[in-house]
């Protein structure tokens, strides 16, 4: 199967949102559903539960496709947040209240250049993490697979997040402006 980049996933998810395109959904499913299942198993779920929840996560991807904002997240990041939230319910972890979400108004759409750049930066972040020293990469993996408590996470993460953070900040400023 051909590897797709972040911008291509955005197009496929938009097709799901706008035309309920089953072929686009199938491509998303074949890439992300096995990863969601593996993420859940590595986070402590058994195989049966992980299978069930991976399917539920993909149902949510279909249902909430219109809420995805490609100026602030990659498709992988958005699906990660859905899987993380379901994992908390499934494993009966501590509740995780969220800040009120900000949505684009009906007349406003994210800026296309902003979307493209954010998606490219997300691809670059994946590459950058792959090149981190192994010890540091394992610490991050353990943190996200819910294997470290907050006091065990290193104070200095050493992650190259400055660029992507600034990009998302610009999108938020534009969104705030459109809402006010």
């Amino acid at each position: 199967m051909k590897a797709r980049n972040g911008a291509e996933w955005v197009v496929l998810l938009r097709q799901v949102a706008e035309t309920q395109d089953t072929n686009a959904f199938t491509a998303l499913f074949q890439h992300f559903a096995p990863r969601v299942k593996a993420f859940l198993v590595k986070s402590g779920a058994d195989q049966t539960m992980a299978e069930e929840v991976a399917q539920e996560v993909m149902v949510t991807v279909w249902n909430k496709a219109a809420q995805f904002d490609p100026s602030r997240a990659s498709v992988a990041t958005w699906i990660f947040t859905i899987a993380r939230n379901r994992r908390i319910d499934m494993l009966r972890r501590d509740r995780r209240p969220e800040p009120e979400e900000l949505f684009w108004g009906p007349e406003e759409e994210p800026d296309q250049l902003q979307v493209l750049t954010l998606q490219q930066e997300s691809d670059q972040l994946i590459a950058a993490i792959a090149e981190l020293p192994e010890k540091q990469r394992i610490m991050i993996e353990r943190a996200y697979f819910s294997d470290l408590s907050h006091s065990e996470i290193a104070e200095e993460t050493g992650l190259p997040l400055g660029t992507i953070k600034s990009r998302i900040r610009l999108a938020l400023d534009r969104l705030r402006h459109s809402l006010s």
Binding site: F32, F39, A76, T77, I79, F80, R84, I129, I140, F145
Partner: peptide, 9 residues
């Protein structure tokens, strides 16, 4: 969260 997305990938 983008790091989480990279971990999922």
């Amino acid at each position: 969260d983008a790091i989480g997305g990279a971990m999922l990938e």
